[in-house]
Design a protein around this nucleic acid. Structure first.
Lengths: 161, 161
DNA sequence: GTAATTGCAAATACTTTGCCACGTA
DNA sequence: TACGTGGCAAAGTATTTGCAATTAC
């Protein structure tokens, strides 16, 4: 489910946890389980999504919010805005981060490769106008094939992506 | 403050109201004042921003939400996600809609011209994968020059915008 | 032992809904 | 008159904070 070479998911997860530990975080069950789940499921998901996974069911979602914020500050995780409601989080992957095509009806997600031009624009904006740490976020919204067919079945307003 | 030719802002606002009236909306003070403000201030703003403007101070913000939804459905207004918190709304302008560079500290906003390539991608995605009504949303995030200078003055966590 | 972490309760922020009075056409 | 609209109260959803108990190191 991920693209690391010669490493199991468990190895990758442990490496990330160690990296975080070196940064001052503690090797708790909550942290380990969260990282394992995020390694196993690289697609972005809202807090409610992660909170619903088996190994995280017993975790208070406040803890998830706090953990996620730390992971974001440590550049291990990034937040993306794919729905109107909740922010989604995903593990940062090597190389350029994916952007997404999102179904506004069912929340279906499809990765999309952003034009390299956007990355150039980030640097250009930084140079030209003195902004720092410029990054972009790009989403495409539309109706997926399943939701395009008119009044076929009921609409899904899933909370957890 | 806008780019319509040979028309005052008041004219433009009235034209939009009439267009909405033809669609079944009623020519109420709330609608007229909101449209006037949005014509006068084309930049995107959160509900709280619009609610704070002089002519809308006395308006219940629930009404603003409801109005804004109708305007969005009528393609007179569009919503954009510029902050973590509230959705922002702006009048739809003739031609391609602007994208923005947003300061993650103070919320400062700078319009940016998106690559034409993105518009091609929208159509390409629609054709290739059977999605309908594909549109994009692009934001650049960073620290503006004012907020770049370290610990100069206090942080502004403005609610409106 | 010390500092980070967790859970619980509560607060905050944003948005939506129900219901009834009122205004526009 | 009839239906869209506006206000108020309340509910709903997402997120954050305070504080005390617990746990990692």
């Amino acid at each position: 489910m991920n693209t690391y070479h010669h490493s199991t998911e468990a190895d990758v997860a442990e490496a990330i946890v160690s990296q975080l530990q070196a940064r001052g975080l503690r090797r708790t069950a909550a942290l380990r389980n969260l990282i394992r789940e995020m390694v196993a499921h690289p697609a972005p998901g809202a807090i409610a999504h992660w909170a619903g996974l088996p190994s995280l069911r017993e975790l208070n979602s406040v803890t998830l919010y706090r953990l996620m914020m730390k992971l974001e500050q440590a550049d291990v995780v990034r937040g993306v805005h794919l729905g109107e409601r909740a922010q989604c989080f995903q593990l940062i992957q090597p190389g350029p981060q994916p952007d997404y095509l999102v179904c506004t009806n069912c929340g279906d997600l499809q990765p999309v490769e952003a034009p390299a031009e956007l990355r150039q624009m980030e640097q250009q904006l930084a140079r030209q106008s003195g902004w720092q740490g410029v990054r972009h976020e790009l989403e495409f919204f539309g109706l997926c094939p399943d939701c395009t067919a008119p009044h076929t079945e009921d609409q899904v307003h899933s909370t957890a992506r």
